[in-house]
Design a protein around this nucleic acid. Structure first.
Length: 241
DNA sequence: AACAAGTTCAACCGCATAACA
DNA sequence: GTGTTATGCGGTTGAACTTGT
Protein backbone atom coordinates (compact mmCIF):
# COMPACT_ATOMS: atom_id res chain seq x y z
CA UNK A 1 0.00 0.00 0.00
CA UNK A 2 1.48 3.30 -0.99
CA UNK A 3 2.37 5.52 1.93
CA UNK A 4 0.57 8.36 0.26
CA UNK A 5 -2.76 6.81 1.10
CA UNK A 6 -2.21 6.46 4.79
CA UNK A 7 -4.01 8.37 7.44
CA UNK A 8 -5.01 11.50 5.57
CA UNK A 9 -7.89 12.49 7.80
CA UNK A 10 -5.91 11.87 10.93
CA UNK A 11 -3.07 14.09 9.83
CA UNK A 12 -5.56 16.82 8.98
CA UNK A 13 -6.93 16.71 12.48
CA UNK A 14 -3.46 16.67 13.98
CA UNK A 15 -2.39 19.59 11.85
CA UNK A 16 -5.35 21.71 12.89
CA UNK A 17 -4.73 20.73 16.47
CA UNK A 18 -1.12 21.85 16.18
CA UNK A 19 -2.04 25.39 15.16
CA UNK A 20 -4.18 25.75 18.24
CA UNK A 21 -1.63 24.19 20.56
CA UNK A 22 1.37 26.15 19.35
CA UNK A 23 -0.42 29.36 18.57
CA UNK A 24 0.79 29.12 15.01
CA UNK A 25 -0.83 31.23 12.38
CA UNK A 26 -3.06 29.28 10.09
CA UNK A 27 -1.91 28.91 6.50
CA UNK A 28 -3.60 31.06 3.89
CA UNK A 29 -5.27 28.07 2.28
CA UNK A 30 -6.58 26.49 5.45
CA UNK A 31 -10.22 26.51 4.46
CA UNK A 32 -12.91 24.14 5.62
CA UNK A 33 -13.16 22.50 2.23
CA UNK A 34 -9.43 22.15 1.64
CA UNK A 35 -8.05 18.65 1.92
CA UNK A 36 -4.77 17.96 3.64
CA UNK A 37 -2.59 14.97 4.21
CA UNK A 38 -2.11 12.06 1.89
CA UNK A 39 -3.35 12.30 -1.67
CA UNK A 40 -5.89 9.83 -2.98
CA UNK A 41 -5.57 8.11 -6.36
CA UNK A 42 -8.48 10.17 -7.65
CA UNK A 43 -6.82 13.42 -6.64
CA UNK A 44 -3.58 12.35 -8.28
CA UNK A 45 -5.40 11.52 -11.48
CA UNK A 46 -7.20 14.86 -11.52
CA UNK A 47 -3.93 16.70 -11.11
CA UNK A 48 -2.18 14.65 -13.79
CA UNK A 49 -5.05 15.10 -16.22
CA UNK A 50 -5.19 18.83 -15.66
CA UNK A 51 -1.45 19.39 -16.06
CA UNK A 52 -1.26 17.17 -19.12
CA UNK A 53 -3.96 19.29 -20.72
CA UNK A 54 -3.02 22.77 -19.51
CA UNK A 55 0.61 22.48 -18.48
CA UNK A 56 2.29 23.56 -15.27
CA UNK A 57 1.93 26.95 -13.68
CA UNK A 58 -0.74 29.16 -12.08
CA UNK A 59 -0.72 26.93 -9.04
CA UNK A 60 -3.01 29.28 -7.16
CA UNK A 61 -5.86 28.83 -9.57
CA UNK A 62 -5.09 25.25 -10.55
CA UNK A 63 -6.93 23.46 -7.73
CA UNK A 64 -10.24 25.08 -8.54
CA UNK A 65 -9.79 24.60 -12.26
CA UNK A 66 -8.83 20.97 -11.78
CA UNK A 67 -11.63 20.27 -9.33
CA UNK A 68 -9.30 19.62 -6.43
CA UNK A 69 -9.95 20.59 -2.83
CA UNK A 70 -6.32 21.38 -2.21
CA UNK A 71 -4.26 24.52 -1.99
CA UNK A 72 -2.01 25.40 -4.90
CA UNK A 73 1.09 24.85 -2.85
CA UNK A 74 0.07 21.33 -2.08
CA UNK A 75 -0.67 20.62 -5.76
CA UNK A 76 2.69 21.96 -6.83
CA UNK A 77 4.52 19.85 -4.27
CA UNK A 78 2.59 16.73 -5.18
CA UNK A 79 3.34 17.22 -8.86
CA UNK A 80 7.00 18.11 -8.45
CA UNK A 81 7.86 15.47 -5.87
CA UNK A 82 5.71 12.58 -6.93
CA UNK A 83 3.63 12.78 -10.07
CA UNK A 84 5.93 14.38 -12.62
CA UNK A 85 6.56 11.77 -15.30
CA UNK A 86 10.35 12.09 -15.42
CA UNK A 87 10.83 11.42 -11.74
CA UNK A 88 13.19 8.59 -11.01
CA UNK A 89 12.03 6.59 -8.02
CA UNK A 90 13.77 3.92 -6.03
CA UNK A 91 17.18 3.56 -4.46
CA UNK A 92 20.00 5.93 -5.14
CA UNK A 93 22.95 4.52 -7.06
CA UNK A 94 26.43 4.73 -5.59
CA UNK A 95 27.48 7.39 -8.07
CA UNK A 96 24.40 9.43 -7.23
CA UNK A 97 25.28 9.19 -3.56
CA UNK A 98 28.87 10.24 -4.21
CA UNK A 99 27.66 13.19 -6.23
CA UNK A 100 25.28 14.29 -3.47
CA UNK A 101 28.14 14.23 -0.97
CA UNK A 102 30.36 16.24 -3.27
CA UNK A 103 27.67 18.76 -4.03
CA UNK A 104 26.71 19.09 -0.40
CA UNK A 105 30.33 19.84 0.48
CA UNK A 106 30.25 22.49 -2.18
CA UNK A 107 26.79 23.98 -1.80
CA UNK A 108 25.60 23.09 1.68
CA UNK A 109 21.91 22.44 2.27
CA UNK A 110 20.80 23.92 -1.03
CA UNK A 111 18.83 20.87 -1.96
CA UNK A 112 17.21 22.24 -5.07
CA UNK A 113 20.60 23.05 -6.56
CA UNK A 114 21.90 19.62 -5.63
CA UNK A 115 18.80 17.92 -7.03
CA UNK A 116 19.23 19.92 -10.21
CA UNK A 117 22.40 17.94 -10.83
CA UNK A 118 20.67 14.61 -10.38
CA UNK A 119 18.30 13.95 -13.26
CA UNK A 120 14.96 12.66 -12.09
CA UNK A 121 15.59 13.37 -8.41
CA UNK A 122 13.71 16.00 -6.44
CA UNK A 123 15.04 18.28 -3.75
CA UNK A 124 12.75 16.62 -1.23
CA UNK A 125 14.03 13.17 -2.13
CA UNK A 126 17.67 14.24 -1.99
CA UNK A 127 17.10 15.96 1.33
CA UNK A 128 15.38 12.91 2.80
CA UNK A 129 18.10 10.61 1.50
CA UNK A 130 20.76 12.84 2.95
CA UNK A 131 19.13 12.96 6.37
CA UNK A 132 18.22 9.30 6.57
CA UNK A 133 21.19 7.61 4.87
CA UNK A 134 24.18 9.68 3.96
CA UNK A 135 24.33 11.78 7.07
CA UNK A 136 24.41 8.74 9.30
CA UNK A 137 26.90 6.98 7.09
CA UNK A 138 29.32 9.91 7.21
CA UNK A 139 29.04 10.10 10.98
CA UNK A 140 29.83 6.41 11.20
CA UNK A 141 32.89 7.05 9.07
CA UNK A 142 34.00 9.76 11.46
CA UNK A 143 33.11 12.60 9.15
CA UNK A 144 31.05 15.55 10.28
CA UNK A 145 28.26 15.74 7.69
CA UNK A 146 27.81 19.44 8.28
CA UNK A 147 31.27 20.50 7.22
CA UNK A 148 32.68 17.30 5.69
CA UNK A 149 35.68 17.28 7.98
CA UNK A 150 36.92 14.43 10.12
CA UNK A 151 35.61 14.72 13.65
CA UNK A 152 39.06 14.36 15.24
CA UNK A 153 40.19 17.54 13.53
CA UNK A 154 37.79 19.55 15.64
CA UNK A 155 37.07 17.20 18.53
CA UNK A 156 37.01 20.04 21.02
CA UNK A 157 33.78 21.11 19.46
CA UNK A 158 32.24 17.61 19.47
CA UNK A 159 33.72 15.79 22.47
CA UNK A 160 30.84 13.31 22.78
CA UNK A 161 31.39 12.10 19.27
CA UNK A 162 34.90 10.94 20.14
CA UNK A 163 34.00 8.17 22.49
CA UNK A 164 35.75 4.82 22.08
CA UNK A 165 34.12 2.72 19.43
CA UNK A 166 31.86 0.02 20.75
CA UNK A 167 30.11 -3.01 19.37
CA UNK A 168 27.19 -0.79 18.60
CA UNK A 169 29.32 0.95 16.01
CA UNK A 170 30.23 -2.27 14.27
CA UNK A 171 28.27 -2.52 11.12
CA UNK A 172 28.74 -3.73 7.60
CA UNK A 173 29.63 -0.32 6.33
CA UNK A 174 31.20 0.97 9.51
CA UNK A 175 34.90 1.63 9.16
CA UNK A 176 37.61 2.60 11.63
CA UNK A 177 38.02 6.32 11.55
CA UNK A 178 41.62 6.06 10.43
CA UNK A 179 40.70 4.19 7.29
CA UNK A 180 37.50 6.08 6.82
CA UNK A 181 39.31 9.12 5.59
CA UNK A 182 41.19 7.20 2.97
CA UNK A 183 38.13 5.28 1.92
CA UNK A 184 35.92 8.30 1.66
CA UNK A 185 38.59 10.29 -0.05
CA UNK A 186 38.91 7.46 -2.55
CA UNK A 187 35.21 7.44 -3.09
CA UNK A 188 35.30 11.12 -3.91
CA UNK A 189 37.89 10.70 -6.61
CA UNK A 190 36.49 10.94 -10.06
CA UNK A 191 35.72 7.51 -11.29
CA UNK A 192 34.20 6.26 -14.49
CA UNK A 193 30.65 7.46 -14.57
CA UNK A 194 28.42 4.42 -14.42
CA UNK A 195 25.30 6.47 -14.97
CA UNK A 196 25.34 8.35 -18.21
CA UNK A 197 22.64 10.69 -17.00
CA UNK A 198 24.65 12.08 -14.14
CA UNK A 199 26.42 15.33 -14.62
CA UNK A 200 29.56 14.94 -12.56
CA UNK A 201 31.10 18.11 -13.86
CA UNK A 202 30.98 20.33 -10.81
CA UNK A 203 31.55 23.53 -12.67
CA UNK A 204 28.64 25.76 -11.80
CA UNK A 205 26.87 26.64 -14.97
CA UNK A 206 23.44 27.68 -15.99
CA UNK A 207 21.12 24.94 -17.09
CA UNK A 208 20.80 24.81 -20.81
CA UNK A 209 18.12 27.18 -21.96
CA UNK A 210 18.37 29.30 -18.83
CA UNK A 211 19.18 32.87 -19.59
CA UNK A 212 22.25 34.37 -17.98
CA UNK A 213 21.06 36.29 -14.93
CA UNK A 214 23.59 38.98 -15.64
CA UNK A 215 22.03 39.67 -18.96
CA UNK A 216 19.29 42.23 -19.27
CA UNK A 217 16.47 39.87 -20.19
CA UNK A 218 16.84 37.59 -17.22
CA UNK A 219 14.42 38.35 -14.46
CA UNK A 220 13.45 34.84 -13.55
CA UNK A 221 14.98 32.19 -11.37
CA UNK A 222 16.57 34.70 -9.13
CA UNK A 223 17.65 32.24 -6.46
CA UNK A 224 19.68 30.36 -8.98
CA UNK A 225 21.05 33.58 -10.31
CA UNK A 226 22.01 34.68 -6.83
CA UNK A 227 23.70 31.38 -6.17
CA UNK A 228 25.53 31.49 -9.42
CA UNK A 229 26.71 35.00 -8.71
CA UNK A 230 28.36 33.74 -5.57
CA UNK A 231 30.40 31.20 -7.45
CA UNK A 232 31.61 32.76 -10.63
CA UNK A 233 34.44 30.35 -11.23
CA UNK A 234 34.41 26.59 -11.01
CA UNK A 235 35.28 25.85 -7.40
CA UNK A 236 37.21 22.89 -6.19
CA UNK A 237 35.79 20.75 -3.43
CA UNK A 238 36.94 21.71 0.04
CA UNK A 239 36.81 18.17 1.38
CA UNK A 240 38.84 17.19 4.44
CA UNK A 241 40.82 20.39 4.56
C1' DA B 1 3.19 -12.68 19.76
C1' DA B 2 3.56 -8.19 21.65
C1' DC B 3 5.60 -4.22 22.45
C1' DA B 4 9.29 -0.57 21.97
C1' DA B 5 12.52 1.87 19.46
C1' DG B 6 14.28 3.32 15.27
C1' DT B 7 13.73 4.62 10.32
C1' DT B 8 11.64 6.36 6.15
C1' DC B 9 9.55 9.68 3.37
C1' DA B 10 5.28 12.33 1.88
C1' DA B 11 3.42 16.37 3.15
C1' DC B 12 3.28 20.27 5.73
C1' DC B 13 4.94 24.83 7.39
C1' DG B 14 7.05 29.60 7.55
C1' DC B 15 10.02 32.51 5.25
C1' DA B 16 12.26 34.95 1.42
C1' DT B 17 11.72 37.13 -2.65
C1' DA B 18 10.24 37.87 -7.45
C1' DA B 19 6.45 39.64 -9.91
C1' DC B 20 2.87 42.52 -10.29
C1' DA B 21 -0.58 46.36 -9.22
C1' DG C 1 8.53 53.57 -3.82
C1' DT C 2 5.06 50.68 -1.49
C1' DG C 3 1.89 46.99 -0.74
C1' DT C 4 0.10 42.55 -2.13
C1' DT C 5 0.25 38.09 -4.20
C1' DA C 6 2.43 33.92 -6.03
C1' DT C 7 6.05 30.86 -6.06
C1' DG C 8 10.01 28.25 -4.52
C1' DC C 9 12.99 26.77 -0.85
C1' DG C 10 14.72 24.42 3.31
C1' DG C 11 13.32 22.72 7.83
C1' DT C 12 10.18 19.93 10.35
C1' DT C 13 6.53 16.69 11.40
C1' DG C 14 4.28 12.41 12.05
C1' DA C 15 2.01 8.08 10.16
C1' DA C 16 3.43 3.89 8.46
C1' DC C 17 6.76 0.66 8.38
C1' DT C 18 10.85 -2.17 10.01
C1' DT C 19 13.81 -4.09 13.28
C1' DG C 20 15.09 -5.45 17.82
C1' DT C 21 14.00 -7.36 22.38
Amino acid sequence: MPKTQRGGERSLLLANCRYRKLGMRKPCCDKEDTNKGAWSKQEDQKLIDYIQTHGEGCWRSLPKAAGLHRCGKSCRLRWINYLKPDIKRGNFAQDEEDLIIKLHALLGNRWSLIAGRLPGRTDNEVKNYWNSHIRRKLIKMGIDPDNHKLFHLHHQCFPLLHRPRTDVDKDDDALPVSSAAATSADSFKEKPNSSNNLNLDLTIAFPSGTPNPNSAESSHNNNTAKDMDQSQSAPTLPLFN
